[in-house]
Design a protein around this nucleic acid. Structure first.
Lengths: 329, 329
DNA sequence: CTGTTAGCGCATTCAC
DNA sequence: GTGAATGCGCTAACAG
């Protein structure tokens, strides 16, 4: 079913059909009704690729995440997708994997699909190779980075202030009476570095001296949540051994927190009676900080990816990380 | 950058450039090299929409799942996406939500995007409204259902034999010495019904009589894993109260299993010492049954969604659910 | 109000 | 070997 088939059956020209489809004015009502009926009868729906070719707008939005299996960012994808759909856009959500090549390839695919905009979710996209690829393939396409930053004119950032989020979280625990907090952190990422900084800052602002031995690192690949949990579980044992007076374990993310909780429960420790535990990231595993997704969503619109971005828009937007603490038990 | 721009710069015609791009033979090597160089220099990459228009093939594969935030099926999406990518296809993965309207809308979107094939993941797509939508919009497009079934000529099924999977799982527990198994099941879905049937069947085949009071239902919306966990947690308390001699809790899925584990650990019960617990579905939360994804993947190829499906292919393929049991502790 | 024409970017005959 | 012409399905001037 093409627009021409319908036109023929209706005894009008293709442009008339096109006008009806797009709700353009200046059509006699009788004609419109007739066409509308045919459209319905034949379940016609327009070929978006052809339309895109003609209008120079694919109505595609590309979303890049590292791994769809990791629930970390999947929440964001969901709301963005819903919102974009309401706006008439279709999302192409791609898992890039952790390698630079994977990311570069995904960016090229999006270019070939002529997406109208791109959303990069996660600090892991703040890479030089990503910058290069954008420059090569998407220099003309608005890009929004959630929790990442790249210095290019067409790249907008929405940053979640994780540093201050973690700082507030730690401060809250200290105020609550914890005197021997420990930070459980995973591999070195921009995001994790911010959180570490926030932790350190809170400690110092409270008048204590920051002791690096209070920071424990896990090494598991962030792509494998199960491994992360297990490692956190073991690490928790080490923490209790090396720092027996620990009364608060602050975890860089919720996966680690779950591992810690398992370990503590096995050891008969009560939470938060004996030890307080906090997580972060608001995934399925727990709900602690990060902004509400709707607020991210607003910001994306603000960044004008769907709009005809006429007015100048701030290149970078900070969202305060809400620190709705939850001492998981 | 269009094919014409490159052609002009190379002093050849567009068709020549096209031939080079597509590796067609019959081009003097010098010409080819020159064009290739320009292609590289200008980071040219073809507009897939235009190409699709010309070749009548979008090289898009549509994937429908109910909710990207639910890790249940997200594993399948990952491997399918990887595989399709290797084959030169781009996946449009859409979350349909639980409503019929959402599913119908997603199907129409895929039609408008002229996808070359569609993959429906989950038993929740075995709906009459889905059938209607496929008939309306995708009657000409090969559709593969994973763990679902719809009677249409262009719809292929890959079924995971959950009934036998659950039967084997239950039988294994009985053999292991459990004498008072309980089934914890969630809302009524085709998939859950099969599992219940498998449970019942194993009980009876072992010579016992099936007692319906051994089946406990949770009511939480399957879309909200957290709620599911919580409910399973509470339900576990009820189970221990009403059936104090329970020595094995078989959970319909891993989310419920996690809830049960939490509850047991809080009550000081040892797993599997006091009580054995099994989950199902091989999500992040645990790994128990279901086929390996690569085997699913093979089956999809077998169903010929990417191929020119010349030979007739079995309309329905059964995969035995592997019952790699893991008594979670 | 409606039809005609042209063009979006590419692949594919058919000539040369 | 290579170029010119045509069409994919649709929209957008431009006429009438």
């Amino acid at each position: 079913m093409t627009i021409y088939d319908i036109a023929e059956k209706a005894g009008v020209s293709a442009s008339t059909v096109s006008r009806v489809i797009n709700g353009k004015p200046g059509i006699r009502d009788a004609t419109r009704q007739k066409v509308l009926a045919l459209l319905e009868e034949y379940h016609y729906s327009p070929n978006t690729a052809a339309r895109g070719l003609a209008t120079q707008s694919s109505h595609f939005i590309g979303i890049l995440i590292e791994d769809i299996r990791v629930s970390h960012h999947t929440d964001a994808v969901w709301t963005i997708e819903q919102e974009m759909m309401r706006a008439g856009y279709t999302c192409i959500t791609l898992s890039t994997g952790t390698t630079p090549e994977g990311k570069a390839q995904a960016i090229q695919i999006l270019q070939q699909r002529a997406v109208d905009g791109v959303i990069l979710i996660g600090s892991m996209f703040s890479l030089d190779c990503v910058r290069t690829s954008i420059l090569k393939y998407l220099f003309n396409t608005p890009v929004v980075m959630i929790n990442g930053q790249i210095d290019l004119l067409n790249v907008y950032s929405i940053l979640i202030d994780e540093e201050r989020g973690m700082e507030a979280c730690t401060a809250a625990m200290l105020e609550k009476g914890c005197s021997h907090p420990v930070l459980l952190i995973s591999t070195d990422t921009p995001s994790n570095r911010s959180k570490l900084e926030g932790f350190r800052s809170a400690i110092q602002k409270s008048g204590r001296t920051f002791d690096a031995s209070c920071v424990f690192n896990t090494t598991a690949d962030s792509m494998d949540p199960l491994a992360g949990m297990r490692e956190a579980d073991e690490m928790c044992g080490r923490i209790l051994e090396e720092k027996p007076d620990t009364d608060c374990i602050i975890c860089i993310d919720d996966i680690l927190a779950v591992g810690v909780l398992h370990s503590l429960s096995r050891r008969g420790k009560s939470v938060p009676g004996d030890i307080s535990v906090t997580g972060m990231d608001n995934t399925l595993y727990g709900r602690v900080s990060t902004p509400t997704l709707t607020s991210i969503d607003n910001k994306i619109e603000e960044a004008g990816i769907t709009k005809t971005r006429r007015k100048s828009v701030p290149r970078c937007i900070q969202i305060p990380a809400r620190t709705v603490l939850r001492v998981t038990g």
